[in-house]
Design a protein around this nucleic acid. Structure first.
Length: 306
RNA sequence: GCCGGGGUAGCUCAGUUGGUAGAGCAGGGGACUGAAAAUCCCCGUGUGGGGAGUUCAAUUCUCUCCCCCGGCA
């Protein structure tokens, strides 16, 4: 039986320097960088979402960056499909696929698979959302508990996103969320080396602040202004990125640039904290600090030789 | 200087007919199966500006001092 192909995953909180490490690896080996970040997929926000620059993307093939319009939505499942295709393409070119990003769920659905639940009719989702607003979470959570007590017990009645998702899957497919989750997934298709790049939050915070100032110099407000002309709907999926929202408020005159920057940093920091919580729980990750890049690259090369 | 309004959690503020106080945000911890940069859960002792008085009991009432914000001089 042939060995599963190898890929490298580089995960960690925003601002830790993952993209730079990927490029350093590109200097040593033929690789393709594949995005594993849910916001860097948006075409209209290359600066604000910190996508690798065109120059950087020219140094080796990059996939899944900036390919979505502001109104388009991608899901974890669709991401996994696209990433799988990008990996296959990279391997076909004789390049090592290197997944780089900070979206834990995307890594998980790619590497461990995600239940193959068919798409649910949007009318169902819409009706449920209306009912949530009209009847409240407790009513819908109780309804979920009646059909899927195991999953209902795992989530809080205030967790709108999860309560509604579980209900729409039940209504749309006639099977419970728990039933779908219990179905076996295909065996992992790759051998992976999981690398984590991180700093403690208090060390990361000043870096996040500096990065926002760099984005400002690179005319992040101009980027937001252009996006606003193209897509004036702040509820559009593309606008939900941190920095986008805050700049939107500033451009609408809701607050000053100063306040916008404060909010932006605060929200970025809170996000980095959530990422750290997610990745900390992942036992498969080998952790490095940004200044340990040589050690990290050495570990990658050794793993490839083994 | 006078007249108001304030001084309560890191910040913005609420409340206590007198029985030593609680929200939002921030901060800390956690969860995470198709919107995940999303969504959600748990965590609140703080010289109640300082001092004095009344009272069994004062953050609350009284006096006084200090500081802030308006207005008048």
């Amino acid at each position: 039986m042939p060995q599963a192909p190898r890929i490298i995953c580089l995960a960690g909180p925003t601002g830790a320097g993952k993209s730079a490490i990927a490029l350093a690896l590109a200097d040593l080996l033929p690789i393709s960088v594949i995005n594993a970040d849910s916001r860097q997929v948006y075409r209209d926000f290359p600066i604000i979402t910190a996508q690798p620059s065109p120059e950087e993307q020219g140094r080796c093939p990059h996939a899944l960056y900036g390919f979505l319009g502001c109104r388009e939505k991608i899901s974890a499942g669709r991401y996994a499909q696209k990433a799988g295709a990008a990996i296959a393409q990279s391997l076909a070119q004789g390049r090592l696929p290197v997944l780089v990003g900070g979206t834990g769920l995307y890594f998980k659905s790619l590497l461990q698979g995600i239940a193959e639940i068919p798409a649910v009719d949007e009318a169902i989702s819409r009706t449920l959302l209306e009912r949530w607003d009209a009847e409240g979470g407790q009513v819908l959570h109780r309804e979920l508990a009646a059909i899927d007590p195991a999953y209902a017990a795992k989530i809080h009645f205030n967790d709108r996103q999860r309560v509604l998702r579980a209900l729409e899957v039940w209504q749309g497919t006639g099977k419970t969320f728990t039933w779908w989750h219990a179905r076996p997934l295909p065996a992992p298709a790759f051998q992976t080396l999981n690398l984590g790049l991180a700093l403690p939050l208090d060390e990361l915070t000043p870096i996040l602040g500096a990065r926002i100032r760099i984005m400002l110099k690179a005319d992040a407000p101009g980027e937001a202004r252009t996006a606003l002309e193209r897509c004036p709907d702040p509820a559009a999926p593309g606008w939900s990125g941190i920095g986008c929202r805050e700049l939107y408020g500033y451009l609408q005159g809701e607050y000053t640039l100063e306040e916008c920057l404060t909010l932006w940093l605060r929200n970025t920091r809170a996000y980095a904290k959530r990422q750290l919580t997610w990745f900390r729980a992942d036992q498969s990750l080998a952790w490095f600090r940004p200044e340990e890049s040589k050690t990290l690259l050495g570990a990658a090369l050794r793993w490839l030789d083994s």
